[in-house]
Amino acid sequence: MALNRRDFLKCAALGGAAAGTAASTEAAAAFIRPPKEMPPKAVGMLYDSTLCIGCRACVDACKEANDMPVEMPVHLSDWNEGTWDSPEDLSGRTLNVIKAYRHGTMEAKDRETDGYAFVKRHCLHCVDPSCVSVCPVSAMRKDPETGIVTHDPDACIGCRYCVYGCPFGVPQYDLDNPFGKIAKCQFCTHLQEKGQTPACCDVCPTGASLFGLVDDLKEETERRFAMQPGTLYQFPRGNLSEDRPRHEAPVPKYIPAVYGPNEAGGTQVHYLSAVAFEKLGLPKLPKRSFAQVSEGIQHTLYKNLIAPALLLAGLAFFAWRNARKRDQDEA
């Protein structure tokens, strides 16, 4: 080995500093994998917080449709012995949940100060899902047609990386079960196969949860945004088909943004609201999906295993040569 240790270290230190200089976000962008496209027949949901009345029919319907157990938070267990389902958040036993934003005297709905608002939490069915990207055993999959993100418990090893990696905190592992599994909204695929509407949208009395093709829902959003607040509008319920009775209500004053299309690579579930999305606990996220970054770097490093193979060859050569040299020295 001719390489002098001192030289090596100097090179390493200099190289490190040089790399540091180049390590701006733009340089890092070179690694990033191109974004994924919305599947052609992507199905989605439009959740309109202003229409939600907090009746929690969706939570109940979801439990029934997906055969999930009743949830009883520990701090309520002294008066609730499991007869009243009262989920506090998504968990291994709850696939969707209605939460309330409260402020001050809570006088009016959909107002930020001294008001309140409801929000529904469940899987947003990302276009480029982190959970699918991180799952080591392909238990999380994204349907190439409909874009629904599904989970296969028979593949899952329970590493919970999907729980850790989801930017929305959606997949959850049932920690209180020795044979627990990951629970997440799979958009009632079993009902959709039969041509039915997902349970939460099907039951929603106001159409706050609306099921449909993502493109159709985008049009619906634009219709609502195009109308003057206060004008009466026939709000669809359940899905966008004409065979369900609609209901008439004034168009609320939305904040002029949709949550979902521009968050972490885009989602198939979109939110409308009259209060800021952060107030509803929807995290502020960059436009790019995090899977693009992690997969980009990973794929760069391990492309066709060329780099590791070359490294192994080099290492083996040095190890072999050095071992032979040592044997000769000893001999």
Binding site: I53, K99, A100, K109
Partner: peptide
Amino acid sequence: HALAQVATYTPPTAFPEVGA
């Protein structure tokens, strides 16, 4: 046929709070 505005003065306490 129009839907009612649910006029509860405050959301019921049983609702989990955003950010609790």
